[in-house]
Amino acid sequence: MHPLTIQSGQDGQSPPNGLAAAGPAFDLVIFDLDGTLISAPRGGGRHVRVPGSGETLAVLRDSGARLALASLCGRGFLADGMERLGLSAEVDAGRCLDSPGCSDKAMMVADLLLEFDTRSAVVIGDTRGDGAAAWANGLPFVHFVGTGADPASVPGSDATIDRLVDLPRVLDRRPRRLRELWIELDRPSGLALVGPAGSGAGLVARDLARALAAVGVAATTAPRQALGGEADEVAERRVLEDLLEIDALVITHGPAAADGWPSDCLEAVLEATAPQALREVRVRSAVLGGAAGQEAALERSSLEAEHVARVLAASPPIRRLGTGSPLDLPDRR
């Protein structure tokens, strides 16, 4: 394989016949403010930066990630943190209780996902409310306890850190695990990630391509949209055949990416799995247009899940990846 890469599209998905470029573990990193990036000295006084915050933000920015704040404060407190403490030069956006449409932290997180047009995001904070805001949007949560939070106060956190400088290493678990997985599969030249909407299959495919690009392995992704319609299947087969002419790893993904394609073209089939409740949260939070649009998306996701079950019952996957906690991607063999 040639280590050739070109830029991905702005939506974070590789363009047709385009090789993926290396990118950050998560497109967007959303921080709580008070207790996470800044804190008040013991005994009171004006807030100061948390040790390691500047170094951590610089490392994340250098990786290509965008950075944002979501804080249960007013405009004045946010401005003080942004201006007096220098965060405005390091953070791309901020939300507070005075931001339009942001009456709670979950709404702030949702609004930031819309602004940056991504579902590849993670929330960092020190309280149970920060975790709830992440999970309400189907995102992973890293619990920061370095300013005195109880490590056990947010059960179910995807990771816990007591130093901000450890955050980049924790977030890098995802690309590192994806590279390890590709090696464990004996470096296939074509693989499929199968799963319905909300399963995380598309992001895993994209992030695998990015992770391999970072070590000089060319890869491209091909979404599978159809649920088995003959016309769509023929068109998608042609796309795959064209992609297989490229000297690069081809990663297909979608509700049944292995169904209807030549079995000898794809050396490995993986299933992306997440609890139904989490899939529904992810689907709802990704859909604009109100309840009707969300219900339609949920119905389609349910049909996709049934289709995936039928396909994989006949041809079981090599691996099942638990995508409920995107930081770790554990195997479910």
Rank of each mutant, 00 (worst) to 15 (best):
211 A>Y: 05
209 A>S: 10
220 T>M: 13
251 I>M: 01
267 E>D: 12
222 A>H: 13
271 E>V: 10
234 V>C: 06
271 E>P: 01
242 D>M: 12
215 V>W: 01
218 A>Y: 02
212 L>K: 07
200 G>R: 07
236 E>F: 07
226 A>R: 14
267 E>L: 05
233 E>P: 00
263 S>M: 08
225 Q>E: 11
245 E>T: 11
211 A>I: 08
235 A>H: 09
222 A>V: 15
219 A>C: 05
227 L>V: 06
238 R>W: 07
264 D>H: 14
262 P>T: 07
237 R>H: 13
212 L>Y: 11
225 Q>D: 09
227 L>E: 12
238 R>C: 07
246 I>W: 04
251 I>A: 02
257 A>K: 04
211 A>E: 07
272 A>K: 10
258 A>C: 14
221 T>R: 06
257 A>T: 04
200 G>T: 06
266 L>C: 07
208 L>C: 04
231 A>Y: 03
207 D>M: 14
274 A>R: 09
252 T>D: 00
199 S>Q: 11
267 E>G: 15
236 E>G: 12
218 A>L: 02
234 V>K: 14
252 T>I: 06
234 V>N: 09
252 T>L: 15
257 A>Q: 04
203 L>Q: 09
208 L>G: 01
244 L>F: 11
272 A>G: 09
216 G>K: 09
256 A>C: 14
205 A>T: 02
217 V>S: 01
230 E>C: 00
269 V>Y: 08
250 V>I: 12
241 E>W: 04
263 S>N: 08
224 R>N: 12
199 S>R: 12
235 A>S: 12
233 E>L: 15
254 G>H: 10
239 V>F: 12
199 S>M: 09
246 I>N: 07
272 A>V: 08
264 D>R: 10
247 D>K: 04
275 P>F: 08
211 A>Q: 09
266 L>M: 14
266 L>G: 05
